[in-house]
Amino acid sequence: MNFSLGRYIPYESIIHKIDPRAKIVGIIALMVCIFLPMRSWTMTATSLGLSTILVIILLACTRTGIHNILGSLKSMWFMVIMLLLVYTLMPYNSLPNIPVDDNLGVAWNLNGWTVYWGSFAAAGTILMRLVLMISITVVLTASTKPLDLTYAFEWYLTPLKVIHFPAHEVAMTISIALRFIPTLMDDTKRIMKAQESRGVDFSHGGLGKKIRALSSLIVPLFVSAFSRSEELANAMECRGYDPKAKRTRYRILRWKWFDWVFLILLLAILALYIYVCVSGFDPYNFFFGLTLQ
């Protein structure tokens, strides 16, 4: 099991220094880019390819190894096979979300069972989008301290205070949840080791054995999580925590010029993607007169 994915990694990169508020918006923009449907398979491939390059640059900035991301994919092979099966077995174009492009031609035709290359392309697109999604979230969580992230959330929720939305409480809840992820990971490691010493094998064995092995992990994990939350609530109350109180901050978020640069750059990319998506602009045809169909 890989526990390092999704953890904050303390490097000193440009991405680390960007204001978390800019980072959140920028990363949402990038996600939208990835999920925008394009008119033809050439443009889908091009847009995903460009996004991949961008994401790889971001990952390199935060120094998350790409092998880490690929490692997390190992557990997704089952889903990949299911995707392929669904796309090849389903009749042509009955899947609403990703139109199967029939321009790629027929892969094979067995007594009326027609499978288009487009089906494989569509399955590949989904897989690619998922990988990029994971990578982008990793960029965000690896380069931003959880606390800064919640400050940013709270900042965005502040206008909602006018309609009595509990912005601070929500932010506090999120920050506590984030704060306890590594703690729970450590607990998981600890309990796994204790149960492995008692002869549990978490990686081998049939389904029944695996479920039993998991229950020996999950039950103690819940018990410790509940006792921790109780202790935390008591500790907060002892220190006089009142969610409604006015409070000052030790660390204040400061917006700098390179936050503008980062934000404007990503919003420009988003605008470009939206334009291409809506207008059906085909640069291959426009610039080179090619018709890639």
Binding site: R190, K193, A194, S197, R198, S215, V223
Partner: peptide, 13 residues
């Protein structure tokens, strides 16, 4: 080799 960790009570389930 049996190992009893620190605070072993968390392993009960």
């Amino acid at each position: 080799v049996g190992v009893v960790f620190q605070f072993p009570e968390y392993q009960l389930f």
